[in-house]
Design a binder for these strands. Sequence first.
DNA 1: GATGAATGAGACTTCATTCAT
DNA 2: CATGAATGAAGTCTCATTCAT
Lengths: 203, 203, 203, 203
Amino acid sequence: MRETLQAQLTATKRQHVLDAAARVFAEKGFHAATIKDVATAAGVAHGSIYTYFENKEALLLGLFDLMSAQARVQAAASGTPDDPDQLLRATVHQPLAALTSGNAELFRIIFSEALINRAFSERLRTQILEPMILASAELLKSTVFADAPLPPDFDLRVRAVSGLMLGTILQRVLHDDLLETRWDEMPALLVNVLLQGVKGTTP
Amino acid sequence: MRETLQAQLTATKRQHVLDAAARVFAEKGFHAATIKDVATAAGVAHGSIYTYFENKEALLLGLFDLMSAQARVQAAASGTPDDPDQLLRATVHQPLAALTSGNAELFRIIFSEALINRAFSERLRTQILEPMILASAELLKSTVFADAPLPPDFDLRVRAVSGLMLGTILQRVLHDDLLETRWDEMPALLVNVLLQGVKGTTP
Amino acid sequence: MRETLQAQLTATKRQHVLDAAARVFAEKGFHAATIKDVATAAGVAHGSIYTYFENKEALLLGLFDLMSAQARVQAAASGTPDDPDQLLRATVHQPLAALTSGNAELFRIIFSEALINRAFSERLRTQILEPMILASAELLKSTVFADAPLPPDFDLRVRAVSGLMLGTILQRVLHDDLLETRWDEMPALLVNVLLQGVKGTTP
Amino acid sequence: MRETLQAQLTATKRQHVLDAAARVFAEKGFHAATIKDVATAAGVAHGSIYTYFENKEALLLGLFDLMSAQARVQAAASGTPDDPDQLLRATVHQPLAALTSGNAELFRIIFSEALINRAFSERLRTQILEPMILASAELLKSTVFADAPLPPDFDLRVRAVSGLMLGTILQRVLHDDLLETRWDEMPALLVNVLLQGVKGTTP
DNA sequence: GATGAATGAGACTTCATTCAT
DNA sequence: CATGAATGAAGTCTCATTCAT
């Protein structure tokens, strides 16, 4: 039991360091930030970082797992609405909503690294993108294609769905003012586009 | 006349160095790559890099201008088809086609940096994204909204169009095998989605 | 208490590095000497220099403070003799005596830099020269001009006093063999010159 | 004859480069100044410097010779006054007057280097200081010691004379405002000090 | 476990010098 | 002779990582 307590304490501190890392990396970028920066932000000696993380890259992986976990949590929390329309809305809403608060920074850091680091992009695909694509596929099957046979380019259409979400997010984190201001309207609008095309009249 | 020759020679070598930089940065990432790597790839002494570029960041900016220029060239080359349908197809096709050959690397390097470097993201927005958004807006006005009044969320719908393209590209450069294999089908498919929604039947 | 010990240890090592810097700079000159040279002379890794000094220039400032401190210490140590004659002798003796041992090196380094670095010459004037001039002025007032009104060119005469000392020192550090050999005779001789002119008979 | 013309042309350009070097070194200091700086100031390509000077240090030596030559020229120009008093005044006046105009910079550069560069200090002693000391000795012999046997510490007294001049100059080039303002009064004052001591009444 | 002094590999950059044109 | 592109040695400084306390 004591070991459990100890372990919990360790886990807490580890999380504390990770939070600090998220803040620091977000502000300075992964490469510009130093271990000392993170340690200072976490309020520990810089040597102590190595008690919780093997090296600097492990901090990044930790952040990655954090994002991955958050995505799962939010997916679970949203439940599974019965109404197909609600389901569609929820599925599109989720990834976009994940960006509010401080998560845009996390997105920036992780995608920035994944774009130029093959190992990291693998991880990103496996843990984040593929689940998102899978969810999109399930969504399409149970909604728009519920009554029709799947077309031969079904998988590609799924990429269009996930691409629409990713691209919208990407534009926002690249500081598109309009998207930042009217971010709340986007989920509904994207659903509309997916259902009726870009001309679709909003209900 | 001699000056012109000399200037041309210099420009050529500068381009040569820039090409090398693109290759090296693409493989290792901007931060992990060293000036020496670039110099070796270009076949010059590492001090010589500074004959053509003021510092390492100037190389990145050079790559940026390269991408920007390519985008402009392709936009100009595509001309202005009369047929609205052709126009739509062309506009969507362009950015996606720009990714073939070695340009995916350029995209990776530049977006990776823009995600974590505010000055760079400004540049990216002004020189690349905003023109793309403007083109999308013009496109919509002259095609799908040709006969209808513009809806109040028109600007947001434009973001959906550009977002669809960007997100699709992003997935591909993150090594989505399916997209890499069937990239040729995407422009038509995206046009379809935009016109009729994701369920739209391909003609 | 432990903190005090640690601080003392750090201070000691800092001093150790500074001593090494004095030796190295004296031998090679500030610009020709490298951080690596200093580190090697101090017996530490070259990166470690930066634990104690922010950068190379800080080493020079450290040496400067060292010289400044030494000057103060010696001034204090000499006390204030009652006999005016003794006072004169002591005041002239001090700066000249400060040059024995390894301090000629310090003089060389510091004056060499001050001659071409305005910020440094300001510092030198404020911390070393002006105190010396002030001391010379006080000296004159309480000795040769004790019973007479101060002449209108009093301040200039003070410069002659300090100049006589500085110039003599300068000649010695520029390797004048005669001065090096018979340095001990100079204080008395200079006092004589000041009192009676260059022809003055030594008592 | 043509060769002479050519040689003169070369000499002229060489002098032109040297003037530029004096200006540049004076402003930035020898080490901070680059060959390119000098070339730009001289209006030639930086590679061309090497047509006239073997390397960067040769420029410094060139400046040294320049100063040395100027000193000789001025010494010759001043002639040899018959009146011993005039002679004394002239001898002291000379080195001090040499500092007006832009020569203070030259003094700074050369003494700065000589202080930390043994070879250079040798040169300085041989070409500048020793002649100055010799002149001082001759001066003393023909004036204050004209009728008396030379004292055993004669050579040291000579150092006091040259030291008084050097030290006064040193203070001025270290930006002593008072000296800069009232520099004209110094020669007479120094003569006075030498003749009667620091208390001496000005005639 | 925590600390932070110490390490040293390695990065960027400068610049004196050379040499083909 | 003049030019300036090219070279590469060398320098300063950073920082991830280690380890004795």
